[in-house]
Design a protein around this nucleic acid. Structure first.
Ligand SMILES: [Mg+2]
Ligand SMILES: [Mg+2]
Lengths: 643, 643
DNA sequence: TGTCTGTTTATAAACACCTCG
DNA sequence: ATCGAGGTGTTTATAAACAGA
């Protein structure tokens, strides 16, 4: 309601954030080498006026991903896509995923500040459906005619597409019986049908996710560091081929940093295994991600939590821990937003339909991946959870979804000076979150998750365990020097055999300290010379991303459910020796959009600033205004692929 | 007992880790400028054969810090120092601090791998005293004759000296009444007596510590980001003068990263303040650090915890939280190791002796700080806590200190294959910790901390609160554009007005991606050019460090108290929806060194690999073999400065 | 002695969302 | 009223120092 530009969709070209070929910042190696693998400078991203980009889905070859900024009119986009799909006939797979926003928010790119063409985040279309109780407009079976455009470079501009919100089967279920080891060590790209072997794109997963995948792939859910290395290297040839050896340093860094990874030591103290803290509830596997079969009914927690960020998980768990164990039994469906790699939680309760495509391996499977070789930037994987702990609470009776954005405010002396205006204006927002937890525990009149089979489907270990056991023999009793015996750093002076822990060369006394003296200060720094770097850098090959989706509905801060912030939690902190106590006021904002069309919901999504992640799978069809409570949805009727 | 080289002390020169002038790694600014402020290449560190270095204490002008590696014979060092002190007469202050090890462990420097000349960690002498029940050999009043050596460069080699374990008064208590604001904004280096204004060395504190100091300096223990900026800038002119604007990015990064920092939002949502989580128990202030008056009796928790690392604190608190609130009342003196900036906890119960040296500001106070201008490396502040959660448990009745190293091993299926040999050999060690928690809760026959006034002195807020209130008016109602209005990033292309968030320039299509293709792999990377960087970089000026000390006694893994790991904690995880449960076996190692001399204790320290941090203040005197239970120590009798 | 593993800090960077001119 | 620039907050990536096995 605040701003719906509704501009016409005019095709134009736009420089994408990652297409700039500028010198990378952090590198220490150097030869003033010739400009080989020079990028052709082609930033040929085909896009809509506001930066709409049409990209290949990373592993679903029949799917296109349409990234639209927040300012774009989704209806218009859908119409245009539909029209283009119709006029191009039906030659190929036929799915589009609309993604508004990416993991980081596509914002203004580093070089260009284009201001308000920000892209907000993602919602699954299912979520939008539940928000609005409206079906998705039938735009299924659009063809991928847009593929004819030069998409190679635009792939680098897509940052957040990980996973998919679609329930469609993976593109090639044919290679379901291929054992991983059979495929791994030889020509990983030939499982796709194109012949040209792309230079091993970087996977769109963060290190944390990769480690998680690796550990969970093992039957014992436990892995040594070497095994983690090997698993990742086998699945993602990027790390063997193009990545600097520092990626192992990053793996170790992530293992140490995130406390979801804990190290177990064998009783003799000889071996140490890395596990995933069980409280973290991160039992998702890479197979599940690739198969899109991370059914919410098969995992004990909402799937969103499975790949949430550390802080997010910590907050949620900490919050749950604060509950004095069964005081209120209302199973609080804390469904914080999670831009994870996963499929919607509103999946059928029935066992997954897809055949286990076991030997899944990340290859640039889909069509033309020439991968502009000159992409300079080290792509930063999108944050798995946006930090927005506002939850989407669904009440199937009411068939309405409410976004309760609650804030943790442990103000020991809360600042009370608030005018009615500011209270109205800044009430439920403040989306720089991670501190803003859902503390609603006792009094919160939240709408709860239905007790049905969706979120309360018992403690079933994820279904991929048995087939992950095939992974086991890969890691047990590995020969000690197979691939990971990256030899002897020798301080990486100018050789390419580098230790995984980067270190500085003892080099070159002609070194020049680079200092920035902020102007206007005292500054003894008279001689301030910034040496120009040869623009080398961690040249990783660009790659696409997977679709994320989240469970935040629209915050609708214009329509807060609770106008006055209330103090819901006054739990005394359980510190043993602390002195200071504090209270935690709570700010709650809920949005009751009772009956709205899907496009209304989308519009609301687009208008709301603190809303994030719109992810629409256009391949949904046949959902027209029936008020369904989501507990008894037969998705096989709704999704053509399930039929 | 294993290896005491006992080599004679021969003076020689040694290249220190931070004296190499090599190109810094991560920089993006550049002019191919002339080589100004070129380091003279002088690595004139005066040191003992095994890398013993004699350095000025950062702020205690009467104190020298002697850094000795693990392989050095401490007795020998003490003898040499004593002899040199005697032969040089008494012209000046007269304290030596022996530090074996620095924050990171001084290890082999990046360029040179010198192998076994590793330096282990620190113990306060008091701790050693309690370990061995032997007094410190009277080596007081050594003179600082060693100062005549060129120490400027060697200062950069000292990394971990933060704080001090001595109880001596600060060097200049004369400027105790100088208000901070009076001193801050004008010529911060003139409080020291040398005239030459050094180019604002980088403070030896980590960003986390700096933020902690800033927040705790405020009376309300709450600060906005701007105020934190200002506080740090005012105290440490380095950040205004020489630091890149990215230091603010680092501040924000640290605020977000460490969950000890929580953000409070005012109810109107307009302001947000950063506080320190009360459970973190980090109420130490910068004044306390500088004044060395962090008396253990004035803070509710052992002082070590006040500046422990996040993970350390988390572990300890998490462990304490697991206690079902008063099941066993035995006040468990979890004294994990903490290489913090602090003074010993075994300080007198009496109120601190020192006059409040209020306007403390970090300046290179002590004698000659010419500060080799060409130090290239960005010094990494030592980790505040080494991650060793092994505790030193002291029983005053027994007058013995036992290091119970307990390991958290949440093995769901623990690896049980251990031979007696491996059990003997690798039982209590594994000092790559942070996961290894003290889980001893129920059955653990640990020796407890005495109920005396040392660790059980009540919940008294730290004594610096009142004088930190003087800090308040500095931050309240600050004029909006004073110093921190670093203007408009504009994407830091080549200007020096740079946004605090570094971003890449959209620059230069002649950029060259730098890739490392690991040899021996498939590697489409034929053209692999590593451009040589002009060795610019974050040229921070070198600086010294402060003495740390810790509370870990010797692990003595040869003498484990508990031979068989026992499962002490089988607490069901409190997750609300988790599935997997696990047990936590426990490995415990305790060391009963009943009656040993100090030097024996030191020798044991030096021989033990997993022992860390030997910090000996030689200025202690008169402690000779009396078996004191530490609860009723009158330190004023023992420490000359207290008399 | 050197490599591997693990921990921690520093820094750059991308990006979301906010405030305010 | 809107836009855009800058400030604030979160997260990921990478380098690096260093400890200890
Ligand atoms: Mg960890
Ligand atoms: Mg924080």
């Amino acid at each position: 309601m605040r701003r719906s530009p509704r501009r016409p969709l005019i095709l134009r070209r736009r420089k994408l954030p990652f297409q700039q070929n500028d010198p990378p910042a952090a590198e220490s190696k150097s030869q003033p080498a010739a400009a080989s693998k020079q990028p052709s400078g082609s930033s040929n991203s085909w896009c809509f006026p506001d930066g709409i980009r049409v990209l290949d889905h990373p592993f679903m070859t029949d799917t296109k991903v349409v990234v639209i900024p927040k300012t774009a009119d989704v209806q218009n986009v859908i119409q245009v896509l539909s029209a283009k799909g119709k006029e191009s006939g039906s030659k190929g797979p036929s799915k589009f995923i609309l993604l508004s926003g990416n993991g980081h928010g596509s914002g203004p790119p580093a070089g260009e500040n284009r201001g308000s063409t920000r892209v907000s985040a993602c919602h699954s279309m299912e979520m939008i459906h539940h928000v609005s109780n409206k079906p998705v407009p039938a735009l299924k079976t659009l063809n991928k005619d847009l593929e004819c455009h030069p998409l190679e470079d635009s792939l680098t501009g897509l940052q957040c597409l990980r996973g998919s919100s679609t329930c469609a089967a993976p593109a090639e279920p044919a290679k379901q019986t291929s054992n991983k080891e059979n495929v791994d060590l030889h020509s990983q790209a030939e499982c796709a049908d194109e012949v040209k072997v792309p230079p091993a794109e970087r996977p769109p997963y963060s290190y944390m996710a990769l480690i998680q995948f690796a550990i969970n792939s093992h039957g014992s859910r436990r892995m040594t560091l070497k095994e983690i290395y090997t698993w990742i290297e086998d699945r993602f040839p990027y790390f063997r081929q193009v990545a600097k050896p520092g990626w192992k340093n990053s793996i170790r860094h992530n293992l140490s940093l995130h406390d979801m990874f804990i190290r177990e030591t064998s009783l003799d103290g000889k071996m140490s295994y890395w596990t995933i803290r069980p409280e973290a509830n991160r039992c998702i596997t890479f197979d599940q991600v690739c198969r899109n079969e991370a059914d919410a009914a098969t995992v004990p927690v909402p799937v969103q939590m499975l790949l949430m960020s550390q802080q997010q998980q910590k907050k949620v768990n900490h919050d749950q821990r604060k509950t004095p164990s069964g005081s209120e039994k209302r199973m609080k469906p804390l469904l914080p937003r999670a831009d994870c790699y996963l499929v919607p939680v509103q999946l059928p309760v029935a066992p997954p339909v897809f055949l286990p495509a076991a030997g899944v391996q990340f290859t640039p499977s889909s069509s033309q991946h020439k991968m502009s070789r000159g992409a300079k930037r080290v792509r930063i994987a999108p944050k798995v959870a946006q930090g927005d702990t506002s939850v989407l609470l669904m009440d199937p009776q009411e068939s309405k979804a409410i976004k309760a954005e609650v804030k943790e405010e442990p103000l020991r002396s809360p600042v009370q000076s608030q005018t009615p205006k500011t209270l109205l204006k800044g009430q439920g927002r403040s989306s720089r979150r991670k501190q803003h937890l859902v503390h609603s525990r006792q009094e919160e009149p939240v709408l709860l998750c239905p007790e049905s089979t969706l979120f309360d489907s018992g403690v079933v270990l994820d279904a991929s365990t048995f087939q992950d056991l095939r992974d086991t023999e890969l890691h047990e009793n590995h020969s000690p020097d197979k691939e990971f015996s990256f030899k002897t750093p020798i301080k990486n002076s100018s050789s390419h055999l580098i230790s995984s822990t980067p270190s500085r060369p003892p080099s070159n006394d002609s070194a020049e300290p680079w200092k920035v003296t902020p102007v206007g200060k005292g500054s003894q720094n008279i001689l301030d010379f910034s040496p120009i770097r040869t623009p080398g850098g961690p040249a990783v090959t660009p790659q696409h991303d997977y679709t994320t989706f989240s469970f935040n509905s629209t915050p609708f801060k214009e329509l807060p459910l609770f106008n006055s912030p209330r103090e819901l939690l006054t739990l005394a902190p359980t510190k043993a020796n602390g002195a200071v106590d504090y209270k935690e006021p709570l700010q709650t904002g809920m949005t009751p959009p009772p009956n709205q069309s899907l496009t209304e919901g989308l519009m609301l999504d687009l208008m709301n600033d603190s809303l994030s992640k719109i992810l629409v799978d256009i391949s949904f069809s046949g959902l027209e205004d029936e008020d369904m409570g989501m507990a008894n949805i037969s998705w096989s009727e709704l999704i053509p692929q399930f039929k």
